[in-house]
Design a protein around this nucleic acid. Sequence first.
DNA 1: GATAAACGGAGGAGTATACTCCGTTTATGG
DNA 2: CCATAAACGGAGTATACTCCTCCGTTTATC
Lengths: 192, 192
Amino acid sequence: MEDVVLVDRPMRADARRSRRRLLDAARELILEIGGEPTRDAIAHRAGVGIGTLYRHFPDRMTLLHAVILDVLDRTIDAGHTALAGPSTAGEALRTYMHATIDTGLGAVNIVHPLLDTTDWPDRHAAAHDMLDGLIKNARHEGAVDNNVTATDIALATIRFCRPVAIGLDPAEESAIAHRQLDTYLDGLMKRP
Amino acid sequence: MEDVVLVDRPMRADARRSRRRLLDAARELILEIGGEPTRDAIAHRAGVGIGTLYRHFPDRMTLLHAVILDVLDRTIDAGHTALAGPSTAGEALRTYMHATIDTGLGAVNIVHPLLDTTDWPDRHAAAHDMLDGLIKNARHEGAVDNNVTATDIALATIRFCRPVAIGLDPAEESAIAHRQLDTYLDGLMKRP
DNA sequence: GATAAACGGAGGAGTATACTCCGTTTATGG
DNA sequence: CCATAAACGGAGTATACTCCTCCGTTTATC
């Protein structure tokens, strides 16, 4: 009988690169098609072989789960950065919402009905608290009306995360989204 | 040899009902998934058999074409009603954009890359002229800035036509869209 | 009540997607 | 630079889905 020793070796550099590419590709495709993309499409977009995808993520749930965690982490980070920044509470809320377009937060809302919410209670709570903080500050400052809720903000981030047209250049798509979001926020925020 | 006589009989009542249901179902699904839905899904949503779908629309192009014509007609009607109404130019533009959510104009923008634009030059021109009229009036009145273009309006109508979440009650979905559009328009329109 | 029009849905052909397997390539420690 | 384990790529097969036809049943209309 042999001893089984589990050592947490660090990932090899190429493995880390592949994993990152796969997460990015999956997130982009989820947002583009508004649902679960095919495995082949994800691997192709990521520029890796289909075998590599299956080594990193043996089944759909593992992949979707990893994408959500990744997106939430990046979004929560962006929120805290906005909260800690030197700007006004209104500007912080604006900065956060623009960041959600870049972090792809909408992907979470598209995919999460397929999963169990209790799989990531910590991030869910962290995201909730962060957003609540942003809104409370903005209300207190008078930047937004008291009838503006966290749900309003969350639904708006989903709306502006998704592409408007198919086959559009990503840069142009992003520019449109930021521009439209700015107009929306002009309507939401009180003018000085 | 027999004479072939083509008489345009009126459609039977059940046929007219089925056609209407199929067009509505196709439009809804196009908006929901942001692309071309499957035949089975359309027939199921419409509550008719798959055979009925194929009798009305023998191939994909016939169906997509019919959906687009239907949406455009309803939208152009809504635009003209708004133009002819007793309100200000700014209110007319607002009324028109809210109407596009209900007519499902976004479906045209999602599907039309698959078709030849020259297939419906008349409606295309009519829609274009109508939208131009709305914007020119609003600009002239000072309701919107001069840098607001027809493209801005068109892109916004696509954005607000699409559902934000999957599996949401259609009535609630519509309420969210109208509410968000109002905020967007508050940002777009100059305050008095 | 007769008749032509319209309907529904089972089923077969063709296509796309999921997933495995193994020969080849690459990062890493000595 | 070499040895070796880790990671990669993608052809190939099984499976699922989608399209579309066909025909027995139902329904509107005169």
